[in-house]
């Protein structure tokens, strides 16, 4: 899932303090799971903003809604009839949802309510960790299911580097060395021969270096 973190409320207040009608829109998918932008977080932000504006003596109308997703036309269409009533939208979706909302309704300013961080997993409640960088050319088949692009700080393909010490990375002592994890996993699988292979230079044009990317699937297009 896409992992996001809540923005400090002061930052959101700074963006919307001059507005009179604010629509806070959450997303029921990834940001709900990482407890940053779901229905509950929408309620908390709306309540906090109401208290703030009441304290300031300003009459501001704040409404809230949580869509199934903000990255699909069909769900964003659900607010078409109401969105014109507002001066501003605070979207608690990831950066994708915020942008799609802004693209679709360009007469209303859309402000992000979360900081979108990475694609990752819930290691335990309250701890999310990065697992994928969307490099566009998955090599997990050869690395024991552990990704050197996302788990190694240097994203090297033939690791570990000299900074690996007792299974930990030099950038943070509590961080596991991605390549040590790969070696341990391949050893457990009896596939250390995979480790002996030298990876050629990766074609980074499938990653962000090649500019904004698209996936085109003519077979499913209408």
């Amino acid at each position: 899932m896409i992992v996001a973190d809540k923005k400090p409320i002061e930052e959101i207040i700074e963006e919307v303090k001059d507005k009179h009608t604010i629509f806070i829109v959450g997303c029921n998918e990834c940001v709900t799971v990482c407890e940053a932008g779901g229905k509950k977080e929408v309620g908390i932000l709306a309540s906090a903003l109401r208290i703030y504006f009441l304290k300031e003596g300003k009459e501001v109308k704040i409404d809230e809604m949580t869509l199934q997703r903000q990255c699909d036309h069909e769900y964003l269409e659900e607010i078409r009839n109401v969105i014109d009533k507002y001066d501003a939208v605070v979207s608690l979706a990831c950066g994708v949802g915020v942008q799609f909302m802004a693209e679709k309704y360009h007469s209303i300013p859309v402000y992000p309510g979360v900081n979108t961080c990475f694609m990752g997993v819930t290691e335990k409640r309250g701890l999310w960790a990065e697992r994928c960088q969307g490099c566009g050319q998955c090599i997990l088949a050869h690395t024991g299911g552990i990704c050197p692009i996302s788990r190694c700080a240097k994203r090297i393909l033939n690791g570990p580097c000299g900074g690996s010490s007792n299974g930990h990375c030099e950038i943070r002592k509590e961080l596991d060395c991605g390549w040590q994890l790969i070696i341990d996993r391949l050893k457990a699988l009896g596939r250390l021969d995979e480790y002996e292979k030298i990876y050629p230079i990766k074609n980074w044009s499938f990653e962000r270096s090649g500019g904004p990317r698209q996936v085109v699937r003519k077979d499913v297009q209408e």
Binding site: P8, I9, E10, I13, I44, A48, L49, I51, Y52, K55
Partner: peptide, 8 residues
């Protein structure tokens, strides 16, 4: 923390 941030 929230109440502190919003000045209550």
């Amino acid at each position: 923390k929230i109440l502190e941030a919003i000045g209550i």
